[in-house]
Amino acid sequence: MINFSYTRAGSVAEAVGAKSKANGAGRFIAGGTNLVDLLKENVERPRQVIDITRLPLATIEEGPNGGLRLGALATNADTAYHPEVQRRYPALSRAILAGASAQLRNMATNGGNLLQRTRCYYFYDVAMACNKRRPGSGCPAISGQNRVCGVLGTSDQCIATHPSDMCIALAALEAVVRVSGPQGERTIPFAEFHTLPGDTPQIENTLAPDEIITAIDLPESPYAEHSVYTKVRDRASYAFALVSVAALLELDGDMVKSARIALGGVAHKPWRSPEVEALLTGKTATKENFLPVAAALFHDARGYEHNAFKIELGKRAVVRALQLATKGTASIRDVNGQTADA
């Protein structure tokens, strides 16, 4: 773990200024759940750490046009248990509660959740090559232990996945990321926030180095009655997703008016395919109609030695999630107290 200097930002402008000045060698810290881990692994070696926890960004409040605004510094726990989040965006509550542990959710913030780094074994082990850590050094995961790696949107440079649960729900909800930088504020649609690895796996999102996430806007959602987050993992809790699915349905009787499906554990970003989702529009919500949608979502998937199963598993998880969503949003207590895959 490197020694670094520490600054406590008193305002958003101060935070942005400090990050700018650090010239790529600065890191914001809030919950610290991912950064401190990576500092100890020597994956992150910043010269300066900028503490943003005292900024006034921890509120959850009504947003524009009937939406909800989640402060970047609101904790994952406060967000998941917020009554309005539970009522209007149940898939988000469930996704957050399916991730990490209660302790980590008490620490982790919404902004930080978006910026989580991959859990690929080779990224985490600095004795190994990794194009994401050391561009050009190679990707041993492609021919190595790649159970946790992706099957969609991978490249010959990187097959890492984005590890967040929360982001999968945010992608399905078409959240908007509000950021602030030296040039002022701007918004980034969620689908454009995370990037695919391509030839530059070291780039994971479209946030500029001196920008800070200030809030996440959730647009008004017609999906609250039929929202699920299905997570399949190697143990009942406290494990990253092998495959996860946020499935949101807007139903008219048993007919689908609109559908949103986002996939986790399979790609470098929360995976969506609006054109595939559109296949469901106007169809009845039945397994027969879900199967081709699941197949289409994984049409271009490519499996590797230890993770090829994710393609079949992913399809089945999509069908399951859509079936559960059709039945209706489960009570939070059921989800909280049970394995999310049930």
């Binding site: 060698a25 070696r45 010269r47 994401k132 850590r133 050391r134 530059t200 070291q202 994971e204």
Partner: peptide
């Protein structure tokens, strides 16, 4: 937002 070891 480029992450790499070289710049840090």
């Amino acid at each position: 937002n480029a992450f790499s070891e070289s710049d840090t």
